[in-house]
């Protein structure tokens, strides 16, 4: 469950994120909480929905969830900071997940991390300054025969090499700037 929610990365428009997300989160947070008010046991489910909606868990939403579910704020924060499926900082438009499991590691996953870090200038867990990419590392994706595995926005790329990865990042960046020019 946690792994699937990690991989189900929704496409998010990063431009004008702040304003849109605020209005959006106020409206949809009501929908999420509806029917689950005063049910503390629903905390994790509600936080998962918030994570799916916003791509991260904003502070304001934690305060709202705490009030609506009748859970102390520290408890909401404790749960949100404990699970790896919840992010407390906004993630970029595209999420690159590098598998560092044993099989991928043996086949050179470290080189993928170095490539991503070098090309985007962010370390794992970070987001580029233009908000386009977030780099994450996971310990195993369960696709060990395909290693090294890199996941871009929920799509698996097998048997990666630094060169293939570099081209992939370039193509995403090109597609993105094209889409922005057309819009």
């Amino acid at each position: 469950m946690i792994i699937t929610s990690l991989l189900q990365v929704k496409h998010r428009d990063h431009t004008g994120l702040h304003m849109r997300e605020l209005t959006m989160s106020v409206k949809s947070l009501d929908v999420i909480v509806e029917g689950r008010r005063s049910q503390p046991q629903q905390l994790i489910e509600v936080l998962q929905d918030v994570q799916d909606l916003c791509g991260y868990i904003p502070r304001e939403s934690m305060i709202t969830v705490s009030k609506e579910l009748g859970v102390p704020l520290i408890e909401v924060y404790r749960v949100a900071s404990f699970y790896k499926a919840f992010s407390l900082v906004p993630s970029g438009k595209h999420v690159i997940t590098v598998c560092l499991g044993t099989a991928c590691h043996v086949r050179g996953a470290r080189r993928m991390v170095d490539q991503v870090a070098g090309q985007l200038g962010v370390s794992p867990g970070g987001t580029t300054s233009d908000g386009l990419f977030t780099v994450e590392c996971v310990n195993c994706l369960g696709a060990c025969a395909l290693g090294p595995v890199v996941v871009l926005d929920g799509v698996y790329y097998d048997k990666m090499t630094p060169r293939k990865l570099s081209r992939l990042i370039d193509s995403v960046r090109a597609a993105d700037s094209e889409g922005r020019a057309n819009a």
């Binding site: 102390p72 704020l73 520290i74 408890e75 924060y77 404790r78 900071s81 404990f82 699970y83 790896k84």
Partner: peptide
């Protein structure tokens, strides 16, 4: 009060 709690993992 629940002003403090464990955070992180």
């Amino acid at each position: 009060a629940r002003a403090i709690g464990f955070v992180g993992r």
